[in-house]
Design a binder for these strands. Structure first.
Lengths: 147, 147
DNA sequence: CTACTTGCAAAGCCTTTGCAAACTA
DNA sequence: TAGTTTGCAAAGGCTTTGCAAGTAG
């Protein structure tokens, strides 16, 4: 997982504050998990989060990871991406945005610099009378390095 | 599931021909399933297909449905849409196109009349050097009737 | 102290697989 | 007849849940 040092601390504080505001207990496991989510830009899976945390907390369970993910999803601070095999989680950009998944290396790239999607909601409302709340936009293909 | 009588027969023939060309055996179960896929515009799940076919073939199994779906996916004649709870299948428009899913009534609407997505592949290639092969674009929200 | 969180194990779901019997061509 | 397809049951993989023990506030 790639590390983003710039907004890391800031994002971590945001997540922490959300949990506090919610009245949730702050445990060492949760602190570590918030830290991981704030740092990782690699759209980790639950299993990946679990395996990373396990290095520091040998007794942590996958159930705890899922339970905390559920809380953060509920707070809108984590975006779930549903893939054919497993779900991935984005704790840095919890809003809907396009993702590019390389079918060679498996890397997931954020495609949030794309135009053409900004007007999508309006066009959908006009064309279909459908009011968009969320979206999941995934492109599969080959990334720059794998081509 | 909504019925489309217009291109039904034509689509059915296409699917059938694909199976024949592949050297696959044509069984009564498969004929019924092709018919169902050619008719349904409702993006059925494997379970829904199974339950419908079971009315006509009480002994058919879910495994058979999945096995035939696998064949058709391999032939590119069925598009799989991965949702949080279950996969849905489109046997009428097996190419990538946007879907609008109503979170109230659960209906899945084809969003293939939207502009803005036609240039997406080019823009993604230019911006990220990423070559798109497939996509899954899903918008969640409220449909015209449910608003 | 009280209520939330944890770990463990079990269960749930959807999907896939193994294998002998049935069937298409 | 030969090889594919079927049904059944079991297994697989990811996710959720129940519950007693542990812990934050």
């Amino acid at each position: 997982m790639i590390i983003n040092k710039r907004n890391h601390q800031e994002r971590f504080e945001t997540l922490l504050q959300k949990l506090r505001a919610r009245g949730s207990r702050i445990t060492s496991h949760r602190l570590a998990m918030l830290d991981l989510l704030a740092v990782s830009e690699g759209h980790p899976s639950a299993a990946q989060i679990f395996n990373t945390l396990r290095l520091q907390f040998p007794t942590i369970s996958l159930a705890t990871v899922y339970k905390t993910l559920a809380v953060l999803k509920e707070e809108g601070e984590v975006l779930e991406i549903n893939l054919p095999l497993e779900a991935r989680y984005d704790g840095n950009k919890p809003y809907s945005h396009p993702h590019l998944i390389c079918t060679s290396c498996g890397n997931i790239i954020d495609g949030d610099e794309l135009s053409g999607f900004s007007n999508a909601s309006k066009e959908i409302l006009g064309h279909y009378g459908f009011e968009v709340a969320q979206s999941q936009i995934v492109f599969y293909g080959k990334c720059k390095d794998c081509r």
